Simulated assay, not measured.
Amino acid sequence: MVITKNSQSFRYMKRYWILYAMLVLPIAFFLVFRYIPMAYIQIAFKNYSIVKSPSEMDWAGNNGFEYFIKAFSNRDFLYSLRNTIGLNFLDLLFGFPAPIILAILLNELAFKRFKRFTQTIVYMPHFLSWIIISGMALQLFAPTTGLINIVLNKMGFASIPFLNEPSYWVVTYILLGIWQSCGWNTIIYLAAITGINPELYEASSVDGASRLRNIWHITLPGLRPTIIVMLILSLGRILGSEFDRPYALSNKLVSEVSNVISIFVYNNGIRGLQFSLTTAVGLFQSVVCVIFLFAANALAKKFGERGIW
Rank of each mutant, 00 (worst) to 15 (best):
I291H: 06
L235V: 07
E199G: 11
L235D: 00
G240I: 09
I232C: 02
I270K: 06
A192G: 14
N297T: 04
Q274Y: 10
S204P: 04
I215A: 03
I196R: 02
A296L: 04
F264H: 00
S241A: 14
N251F: 00
A209V: 01
A248D: 02
L231K: 10
A298D: 15
R213H: 13
G222I: 02
V281P: 06
F264T: 11
R213C: 09
S205M: 02
E256L: 14
L253C: 12
T219R: 11
I228M: 14
L253D: 14
L200Y: 11
S205G: 13
A248I: 03
E202L: 09
K252Y: 10
S258L: 06
N251H: 01
S234I: 05
V288Q: 00
T219N: 11
H217T: 08
I232D: 01
R224E: 13
I228S: 14
V287F: 04
V229Y: 04
S205I: 12
V206Q: 08
S205D: 12
G236W: 01
L299Q: 09
G282M: 09
A209G: 00
G236E: 06
E202A: 09
V288H: 03
Y266M: 08
F275H: 03
L239G: 10
Q285V: 02
N267C: 13
R245P: 03
Q274V: 00
I261P: 12
K302V: 04
M230D: 13
L277D: 10
L293D: 01
I218H: 07
R245A: 03
N197S: 11
I215N: 05
I227W: 07
D244E: 14
R271L: 14
A209Y: 08
L283M: 12
P225V: 02
R271P: 09
L249E: 06
F294A: 05
P246M: 05
L253K: 04
P198W: 10
L200F: 04
V265I: 12
N251L: 02
I193D: 08
V257T: 10
G282D: 11
S205H: 09
K252I: 08
Y266T: 00
E242I: 12
G195F: 03
A298I: 13
N214F: 02
A296G: 11
R245E: 09
G269H: 05
G236K: 01
V288L: 13
I196S: 01
V287K: 00
R224Q: 14
E242Q: 14
T279S: 11
T194Y: 10
Y266K: 12
